[in-house]
Amino acid sequence: MRKGVLVPQRETGRLDIRFSPTEYYGGLHCGETFEVQINGKWIPTRIEMGITWYLVGVPIEDLIGLIVRI
């Protein structure tokens, strides 16, 4: 598994995972699964799009900057 940070992909409107300053996952798509770190615990989730992007089972509105592993 690789750990990174959720960042916006401005050209496509998708979210992406930044692993280092120059290395990215390549853009997340609906239904992709990964784990997000919340209060020191890893929570399995998947990303979906409604009005905005959200993580299933994770009640957080601002996803930018969350630590994830995939």
Rank of each mutant, 00 (worst) to 15 (best):
53 W>V: 02
35 E>F: 07
22 T>V: 13
46 R>I: 05
6 L>Y: 00
65 G>S: 02
48 E>M: 11
15 L>D: 03
61 E>P: 10
46 R>Y: 11
32 E>Q: 13
17 I>G: 02
7 V>I: 15
48 E>R: 14
11 E>K: 14
32 E>R: 09
63 L>Y: 04
29 H>R: 14
5 V>R: 13
45 T>K: 09
41 K>A: 13
23 E>H: 12
56 V>P: 04
58 V>D: 01
1 M>D: 13
14 R>K: 14
24 Y>A: 07
43 I>A: 05
25 Y>I: 04
39 N>A: 15
43 I>R: 10
63 L>M: 04
38 I>D: 06
31 G>P: 07
60 I>E: 09
51 I>C: 11
21 P>L: 08
35 E>T: 05
60 I>N: 03
9 Q>G: 06
57 G>T: 08
16 D>Y: 09
60 I>D: 02
29 H>A: 13
47 I>G: 03
55 L>S: 04
37 Q>I: 04
33 T>C: 14
27 G>M: 06
49 M>W: 08
17 I>A: 08
70 I>Q: 02
34 F>E: 00
8 P>T: 05
35 E>K: 10
29 H>T: 13
24 Y>R: 13
65 G>C: 03
63 L>Q: 02
59 P>I: 07
62 D>S: 13
67 I>W: 01
37 Q>Y: 05
56 V>G: 05
45 T>D: 06
38 I>L: 14
25 Y>S: 04
36 V>Y: 01
57 G>K: 07
44 P>M: 05
32 E>C: 06
11 E>A: 13
47 I>P: 01
24 Y>N: 09
55 L>W: 02
22 T>K: 12
59 P>H: 14
1 M>W: 09
6 L>V: 01
44 P>A: 07
62 D>E: 15
64 I>P: 01
31 G>K: 08
40 G>Q: 11
5 V>M: 10
3 K>T: 15
25 Y>D: 04
34 F>D: 00
2 R>I: 07
62 D>K: 14
35 E>I: 03
16 D>P: 10
46 R>L: 14
12 T>Q: 09
48 E>S: 11
55 L>R: 03
28 L>Q: 03
52 T>D: 11
6 L>M: 06
44 P>V: 05
28 L>C: 06
59 P>D: 15
19 F>S: 06
57 G>E: 07
18 R>I: 02
64 I>S: 02
22 T>Y: 13
56 V>R: 12
46 R>G: 11
6 L>C: 01
9 Q>R: 14
